[in-house]
Design a protein around this nucleic acid. Structure first.
Lengths: 157, 157
DNA sequence: CTCTTTCGTTTGTCACACTAACGTTTATGA
DNA sequence: TCATAAACGTTAGTGTGACAAACGAAAGAG
């Protein structure tokens, strides 16, 4: 018998707790995260891998610091992450001749292929996540969340 | 200069990443969590403290295992948590004479007072969190999130 | 030519979700 | 009734994510 409690957890949870937006957000975010992580794990990837690959596709070769800004991953954590991606042959790390502090990270052909596959997985999982909602409802949710995110983004100066 | 990146993080984030519901959820949930934690920290409390106190108010004295189910906190983590609450004189731990495996946790008068204060703080923070949304929009968001949560709740058997 | 900033990197911290195992006690059912 | 299973509180430990602090090296600004 499983000791997992994520089902029973909120089955009889106090109404006061069940209705708190902050708690709802945390709970659904965890469910979403698990869906994504499980799915990506099946492809030997983690969500950070995906984020970096997407950033590289949209911005082209970039320094580690740039990738850090683009993805929201701390530059101290980026080191090991890029090691993993390089080990898998998905990216290449080369010193930047124009600025010897920097590394230039670029995607390999293999990385591009992998990214294409991950795109599909990620889309599938978003669909699974939002399964109980209609199209317009999904747009509403994304819209509302986007406004919250922008509102609470640290003031740009 | 601050090293904090939660502002720049998604400022130039790739559209593909910005629009992913799972990523939006994670981001907003983190913002919400920070709001709550910061506010509660000012009252020498953490969100788990609040959850346990609410559960005790709604269910009356309960065993640790019951509190665990009600709040979603693992029973292994409940031990230290109840220690903290007991240290602050907010709850009392007593062996259950009817079932010597159990402890009966009950709220003290001090706990009830504290809970009342925390209720206010938590409400304030929810309001701050949802500040950019109108009343109906808040209801929509909560409704949509609730449906997602219920849909992804581990199937009862 | 200083002073400051940026970059990659290492190390470490804190919180959270979760597993495993234990001794004790209660419930089950053959 | 007696063996077995289950529930309880507790300890210890794992993995991950977010983040701080400091470092040497290199580049930029005054």
């Amino acid at each position: 018998m499983s000791h997992d409690m994520s089902d029973a957890a909120d089955r009889a949870a106090p109404d006061r707790l069940r209705g708190l937006p902050s708690r709802l957000l945390a709970h659904v975010a965890m469910q979403a995260d698990r869906l994504v992580s499980d799915r990506l794990a099946g492809a030997d990837a983690r969500k950070w891998h995906y984020a970096v690959l997407v950033a590289l596709r949209e911005s082209g070769p970039a320094s580690q610091a740039e990738l850090s800004r683009l993805t929201g991953i701390y530059r101290s954590d980026m080191v090991a992450l890029l090691n993993e991606l390089a080990e898998r042959g998905l990216v290449e790390r080369a010193p930047d001749p124009a600025d010897r502090r920097r590394n230039v990270i670029s995607m390999t052909e293999r990385g591009r292929d992998r990214l294409t596959r991950l795109d599909g997985l990620v889309d599938d999982v978003q669909d699974e996540l939002l399964a109980p909602l209609t199209g317009p409802e999904r747009d509403q949710l994304v819209g509302l969340l986007g406004r919250l995110r922008d509102h609470h983004a640290r003031s740009p100066q």
